[in-house]
Each structure stands twice: as structure tokens, then as C-alpha cells.
Design a protein around this nucleic acid. Sequence first.
RNA 1: UCCUCCUUAGCUCAGUUGGUUAGAGCAUCUGACUGUUAAUCAGAGGGUCCAAAGUUCGAGUCUUUGAGGAGGAGCCA
Length: 480
Amino acid sequence: MIIKKVVELIESDQVLQDYKVNGWVRAFRSNRFIALNDGSCLENLQCVVDFENTDDEVLKKITTGAAISVSGTLKESEGKGQSVELEVKSIDILGEAHPEDVKKTILQPKKHSFEKLREQAHLRVRTNTFGAVMRMRSKLSFAVHQYFNDNGFYYVNTPIVTGSDAEGAGEMFKVTNLDLKNPPKTEDGEIDFSQDFFGKETNLTVSGQLEAETYALGLGKVYTFGPTFRAENSNTTRHLAEFWMIEPEVAFCDLEGNIDLAEDFIQYVLKYITEHCKSDLEFLENRLLEEEKSKPEKDRSPMPLREKIDFVLKNNFKRVSYTEAIDILRNSKPNKKKKFNYIIEEWGADLQSEHERYLVEKHFGCPVVIYDYPADIKAFYMRLNDDGKTVRAMDVLFPGIGEIAGGSQREERYDVLLSKMREIGIDEKELWWYLDTRKFGTCVHSGFGLGFERLVLFATGMSNIRDVIPYPRSPQNAEF
RNA sequence: UCCUCCUUAGCUCAGUUGGUUAGAGCAUCUGACUGUUAAUCAGAGGGUCCAAAGUUCGAGUCUUUGAGGAGGAGCCA
């Protein structure tokens, strides 16, 4: 007997052949129709049981959630709603699921809130929505590697435990195996990290960028794609304490090249999923349309999901300097009418998310790249412009998501970098290796960091970042 | 961390100015039916109204505190 996945049978025209399929029961209707799902695709395989010639004990165990193995003949479906169905000859119950227990879980076939699904994150992947989201997450992840591989990038695994806290990207989680109840102390009462596992204070990485830079200055084009940790007390739909970040870093590449790369990369991976996740996308689009029916008109998305993705594929990202952006905002209606919570008055102000949203969603109506930010509001490693007050930074802003990627041309001049570090109090002894790269064959180079979950958020149309990662880690939540 | 809102059956939610025995749909159980698409029909069971304290003759409803959750803001990806 040939064992097949549901996706293979649904797309098959090899009817009248016998197959075996393993999967989980989604529904058992009329004592006759099993909706079988094995995760290989959104669709269920309809398995038609000859209930008059099947043991009652077996029939009773065909319940929602049960794992079963069915063998039978693939036929054109007699009913509507599917093109093929499996005429069952034998059924093995592999793992039972008792209805009295199932009714307490999100497996029971009905609508559940995303909050409830989060509480049962170990079961939520068995729902249509999470099956679709997680298949798309996987495809997107593959597309990321495909893009970089095809474009001459090398995949670099930067360390997850880092010895420096000078990166300044956010609060960090400490890594230690000291006895927390009784840590060794130095003479002046501080914790003595020289006795810790690594002989120094260590943290979980907030970015692989600095290490990636050193590899770009040897391999040419590199990227990282790994877990990243921020101990910020952020409680939003766009933040996680543990998330996956993609960080390309390219030698001999300036900011324009960096923006080109970001745009080309994002368009490539989105195009990939429109071609490889058709039914999942269609399902998620319909789910969203259904959900939006209950919303007031003004809160509805102007475009269905697939149209929104297509729009990003077909239109260039609007590139605008920080200075131009400030002018637009200063002259905007919400600014003049004081509708913004933070009124833009002077050059140098940090853009709040309400401003970013205005630019992306109201003014331009497309993804926007803002570049050449004031040096004062950006990180120390960004290349200082000749004007002495702006740096070669860029943020990619997406509708509904905000900042999806942020990057810069890196400061490649040793003296400028060193004085900047001293100015803001970063210990140059900690980053001696980073400074070293500016001494030995330094060159123009650039890169950016892109939050993978934010990409998945956009591609799936989901609204909470906790619903696009299997087990979200956020403040007060590390269940599972 | 700040602001706002929420917590009633397994789930989603009603619950009137504070007044008898707290309701509905779905799910579950029992039975019927069998080409169904979240199958349908009939009946049954199912509640520490998030927790504690308070006001009151009387609290699901009002007050205070706490816990958990959601949305927005900040920080950022």
C-alpha cells in the first residue's frame, strides 16, 4: 500500500488507486464522512466510511482530534465541496481523543478567539488558521535562504551568548550559571563575574550585526537568521522577547545599495509565498474579510490580503530623506490641526509611530524608506554624513506593521568611529575586535536587520505577532 | 512602564435602577436520521458569576485591593 500525504491525493488525478493516509480527524459527519487533515495542506481529505460494515467500536472512536490511519480507493467525489475522496476499506485508530476531554480544548470544531488559542498553543497548530500561518512561516523562511543563496550571500551563525553589552539595541537577558542565591562577590561588593562560566558577564544576543560585519569584511556578502532576545517590557502586538531576525551585511556597499537590497529581498520572499502558498493565502484572506465585516468601515483594510501583497510586489518603495519626511509631517493636516499626540515642530524630533503610520498609510500609501536620520537619534555605528549632523541610516516602514527593517551604512573610518564611541561612553576595550576591522582593510559596507515575525505578520495578515510564532515569549509569558 | 477596557457553563456571549430558582447559541451525553461540508432533529446534564474584603435586609450587578488577559503608547525588529 502506498502511503500518501493529503496534499498529494487532493492534487492527484490518479483515481481508482489504493492509498493509505495518516492524519487527524477534524470532523466526522453523518457517521460516514471523515474530514482528515495531516498538516500537509489546508484542505481536508474526505474519507467515506461504509458504516454498515464497520465495527461499532471503531466508529465510536472516530472522533474529532483522534489520530487515524485509513486505507482505501481514491475516487472522484460524489458530493460537492471536494473533487476527490477516499472510499475507506480499513481504518486503524492510532490515538484516541475522548469527546469529553476534547470539548474542553480548542480542538472542538468551532470558532475560537486568538486569546484562547494562545492559551492552548500546543494544540492551535491543528486549526486551519494556524496551520496556514505556520506553513507560510516555513515557506517564507525557506525563501529567505533561497534568496541569499542565489545572490551570493553566505549564511553566518553569529553567537547567541554574547560577551558585550555595548550594542545598545535594548535591554538584555543575563546568562549565568552562578548560584543566584549566593553569588560570589568582589571586594567592593559587586557580583564577581570572573568566577562565572565564561569568566565575564554575558548576555543573550540582541543583534548579530557587529559579528556579521566582521564576516562581511572577509566573505563579502553574509546574512544571519537566528533567534534574538530583548528584555524590554514591551506589551504590544509587534514585539516579542524572543524573535527571529534576518541581518544581511554587505562589503563594498553603500546606503543606496542597502536600500536596493532590502527592497529586492522583501519583494522576492513575498513573491515566493504568493506562488507557493496559494490556498493558505486564500484562506487567510477570506478569514480576514470575514473578520472585518464586524468592524466599522473606517477600521477596515482598504485591500484584501493578496492584493496588499501584490501592491508591495509591483510598486517601488517610496524613498524619502528624514528631512523631507519632517517637512511633509510639519505641513500635514493632523499636525496643523494638532491631531498628533506628538506635534512635529523642529528638525531633529524622533518620528513616533503615529507619524510613520501617517506617511505610509495616508500620505504615500505604499511602503516607505526613510533615510539620513539625525545622528543624535541613531546608533553609534552608523556612517556620519558630510553635513556632520545626519547618518546614513534607513528604516523600512510597512502599512499596519510600522518598522519592518532598519539598517545603515556602517561607519568605516576608524577615527570617526572611535570618537563616536568615546562620546557616548562605549568601552572601546570591549569592542576592540570591532574597531580592529577598521584598521585592517576597512571599506564601505552596509546592512540591515529585518524582524522575521513582522514579515510573517504582513504576509499572513495576522494582527498580533504572538500568533505568527509557535510559542511566543513575552513579558510574564514563557509557557510551553 | 503608562493609559483604557475585559474576566458569568467546555467555548462565544446576554444578564434591566441592586430584588424569587443566573439565561442563549455552539459543544458534550442519550436517542433518531444518514451523500454530509462547523450535517440535521428531539431530549438531558452542565455554574465557587476571576479572588479577597467592604456597602446593603439583599450583590453577577455598587466600592476597594489583588490576579490574569486584551488593545493603545513608549522602546524597537
